[in-house]
């Protein structure tokens, strides 16, 4: 029989003690807030006056269109995610393919392509505000050289999201480095066998590289999706959600509700909907992954 004393021997006691910071952190900063957040989401709450329980009213307000900005914000965010994530992955993959060749200065190029990801969001927002400036910004000056009239970029309702997508392509370095590491893990003999069979680089790409890279593509897709869904800084700093709510990204919508309108209850409901959307979509990607992601155990069979 294992007695309590034996179960909690010296090693176990030390183990629990050493793990206690992260356990306490989980309870204080994750579990507790989750319960509180769910309670808030069922209430009317502005921090100052006491919480007033209203059931699923906050959720109903979102879905029945009482708050017209909910669907607008979801749409805008979806537009951004659908446009930016595939483009980012495609571009990062292509750069990684180029860098995977036996070339000189590989480390140098890798550093250069990674550099923009280090830039703080506020700083990159300032740089791109300047590039996008309709009167003096470089992009419009360049267009002028080709005889194209200047665009309004982030100040135009139609172009605001595409402009921010363009900006997001500057920071694909992290994704690219992960792809590059994956590419370097592909065994050389596979390519050699294609060569022996008389295949060219296209055969190598479609029959070896892409199938073997699907797990990495999958990882980057999920991470890119989660990251893009939560984009905040650009909307706050560059466009303030405008023009005419064209860049009212979901995180910014939530921030405004909570910290500008003090609607902690409705903002919590907005947060839970975000969590559910991310959860469902991530699960969907995981479910479909069996269809297209190569797994090593299967390959060996």
């Amino acid at each position: 029989m294992i007695t309590g004393r034996k179960l909690w021997n010296k090693e176990a006691r030390a183990g629990l003690l050493f793990a206690s910071p992260v356990i306490a952190g989980f309870i204080i900063f994750v579990l507790g807030p989750m319960i509180a957040s769910f309670t808030f989401s069922l209430s009317e709450y502005n921090v100052i006056t006491p919480l007033k329980f209203i059931g699923f009213g906050n959720y109903a307000n979102l879905f029945d269109g009482t708050d017209p900005l909910f669907y607008k914000s979801l749409g805008v965010t979806a537009y951004y995610v659908i446009l930016s994530v595939p483009l980012q992955i495609l571009l990062a993959f292509m750069v990684a393919l180029l860098l995977n060749h036996p070339i000189r200065g590989k480390a140098f190029f890798r550093t250069i392509f990674y550099m923009p990801t280090i830039v703080p969001a506020v700083a990159s927002s300032m740089i791109w505000l300047w590039l996008f400036d309709p009167d003096l910004g470089l992009l419009n000056q360049l267009l002028k050289v080709f005889g194209i009239p200047g665009l309004q970029w982030i100040y135009s309702e139609n172009l605001a999201v595409p402009s921010l997508v363009l900006m997001s392509l500057w920071t694909i370095g992290g994704t690219m480095v992960i792809f590059l590491a994956g590419l370097q893990g592909i065994p050389k003999h596979l390519y050699e066998s294609v060569e022996v069979d008389g295949g060219n680089w296209l055969h190598k790409l479609f029959f070896i590289t892409i199938p073997l890279m699907t797990p990495t593509i999958f990882f980057n897709l999920v991470m890119g999706f989660i990251g893009s869904f939560q984009v905040f800084g650009q909307a706050y700093i560059m466009t303030q959600g405008g023009p005419n709510n064209a860049t009212l990204f979901y995180s910014y919508y939530l921030y405004r509700e909570a910290f500008e309108f003090s609607g902690m209850g409705s903002a919590s409901a907005i947060a839970w909907v975000m969590f559910l959307i991310i959860l469902v979509l991530t699960m969907m990607v995981f479910k479909t992954s069996a269809l297209w992601v190569y797994s090593e155990s299967e390959g060996k069979r």
């Binding site: 900063f29 994750v30 507790g32 807030p33 989750m34 509180a36 957040s37 808030f40 989660i226 869904f229 939560q230 995180s251 939530l254 909570a258 902690m264 903002a267 919590s268 907005i270 947060a271 839970w272 975000m274 969590f275 991310i278």
Partner: peptide
């Protein structure tokens, strides 16, 4: 868990 859920509490 997205940071947004725990941010408000």
């Amino acid at each position: 868990l997205p940071g947004a859920v725990t941010l408000i509490p």
